[in-house]
Structure formats: structure tokens, C-alpha cells
Amino acid sequence: MRLARAARRKGPGVSEESAPRAGGEVAVAEAPAEDERRPVLKRKDNRAWWLVLPVVVSVAFTAVIPLMTVVNFSVQDVFGPNDRVFVGLEWFRSVARDPEVRAALVRTLLFSAQVLLLEIPLGVALAVCMPRRGVQVSVALVLVALPLLIPWNVVGTIWQIFARGDIGLGGWTINNVLGVNFNYTLDSTDAWITVLVMDVWHWTPLVALLAYAGLRSIPEPYFQAAQIDGASAWSTFRHIQLPRLRGVLTIAILLRFMDSFMIYTEPFVVTGGGPGNATSFLSILLSKIAVGQFDLGPAGAFSLLYFLIVQILCYVFFTVLTRSGR
């Protein structure tokens, strides 16, 4: 909440505090004449810059250099280890025009939208229903957090089996008890639904936990005031709980958007992107180009565009969510 508030005041982007005034620069070089008693500690000392070095090195090693490698690939046509040609922005153009990429982009956007529309309300509803005090709190927290503890590929495997019509409990029940023909390996809609439900099962708890933390931080007098003002349960939710969840929900939406927009492991395990292209999201297509076909140039350009889209959409979400509360 406070994070969002601070950002709202100053607008998005770099806040004043975090502006690069690191190290000794922060200190006042010469104490003002009228304040002689100022401690001598506050002297300028440029050696403090060395303290930043470990961060610079590790970030460079793990993020900046790999990213630059990708940039390097994206503007070249690589034939072999020592055989490459500079091609400028050609890969960017061809990737942007590629109908397969465009279809995957639309698919991924649709998936993320559905994930947000389902998980955010469900998570909030779950959080509202969770107990507020007593032993039940721990029990509820553990139960809700359980899916979050399972590794992605295991989640994929669980659902791959669970949704099968022959041996999976879920798939079998749909086919034989409900009498609906359900087969995610053949039917694109069924495959889509399976992946979507799996994501909702896996990640709604995250939203619920964040929302629960947000709800718990609302001081008791707000609820007391609502009782005294004769507010119904719905209007208590609408006018007290929901507005005060803005901060945590902003974080929840950003996390769930980024994560679902880059979803890879679970659909890879469950459907492998199929049937046909029904569940081949951007990440699956990207890894096919990069690892499967080893087309490093197009894959590099694709990655950078992908990265850019995620950045832009997160920025838009953040701005809209934090500004709307003014």
C-alpha cells in the first residue's frame, strides 16, 4: 500500500530516494556555516563506491551480459560458431510479420486476460472467506498455500494425468459421470480449458494469500464504523475492504500477468502446445525456434520483442491501477 502510495505521489518510474546518489555522494560535503555542531561523520568519501561493486558484477554477470548476447544474436544471421553476418533489424521485421508469432501473441494475451479475470476475483473471494482468528487461520493458510509449493513441472504432470479420460480422475468423471465428451489431446477447446483450470488451481492461492494479508492489515475500527453506519456485508466489502486492497491487488495483477504471459512449463508438460497450435503460447513457440530449430537470430529478436511487450503492459497496468485511485 505504502509502496503504491509513494509511487502515486511521485508518478511511476524512479522515485527520488532511489535516484543514483549512492555512496559518499549522499553526504553533505561542507556543513553549513550556521550549524557547526554537525558530526564530522558526514564527510564525502568516494571509496564508498566500492561497496556497490559486488552488485554491479553479479547483475552484469547474470543479467546484463546474457541480455547483450541476445541483442548481439538478434542483429546477426548465425550459420556456425565462427560464421555470422550482420543483418540489422531484419529479424525483428520478419518476426513481427510472422503469422505464427502473431497468432501465438493473440493466444497468450487471451490466456493472460482469462487468468486475471478468473484468479483475481476468485482469490479475493477466497481471502474474504478465510477465517480471521483462531487455529483455523493456520489450517486455512496451509491448505490454501499447498498448490504454491508444488514445482511447475509436477503441476503439469499432475494435471496431465488428472485430466485424462481413461485413467485420470477428473477426465474420467467428466466423460463418464457428467457424460460430456472431454479429450484434451484431441480437442483444442478441451486442451485450452485444461491449461486454464490448471493455472487457476495453481495460482489463485497466491492472489488469495496477498489479498488475505491486505485484508488483515485493515484496522478494526473500519469494520466497527461500518457496523455502526449500518453497512451491509456487500457495502462493507465494496467501500472498506476493496479500496484498501488496491495495493496488494496491484502487485497480484502484475505478478499474475507477467507469470501467465510467460507461462511455459505446465502447458509444455500437459499439451506440448497442441493439439495443433491450440495451446502454443509465445514462450513455447520461442523455445521451439531457439532450442528446437536453433535459429538464434530470429529467437533473439523474438525474445527482445517479447521482453518489450511484457514491460509495456506492466507499465500500463501499474499506471492505470495506481492512478485510478486518486
Binding site: 475500527p221 473500519y222 466497527q224 464504523a225 455502526i228 453506519d229 449500518g230 453497512a231 451491509s232 457495502s235 467501500h239 472498506i240 479500496p243 484498501r244 485511485g325
Partner: peptide
Amino acid sequence: IAQVFQFPVLYEEMSVYDNLAFPLRNR
């Protein structure tokens, strides 16, 4: 019963008018 607390308790996203009207509208 009406009760006023030690620290401001408001419906933050509402206008001052709506805040004042809230207890009446609920009734």
C-alpha cells in the same frame, strides 16, 4: 447508536458528501 473513533475512519474513495450520507443511505 452513533460512534466516532479516535482516528479518522472514512470511506476513502467516496466524496465527503457521500461519506456523510452513507449512514443515512444504508437506512
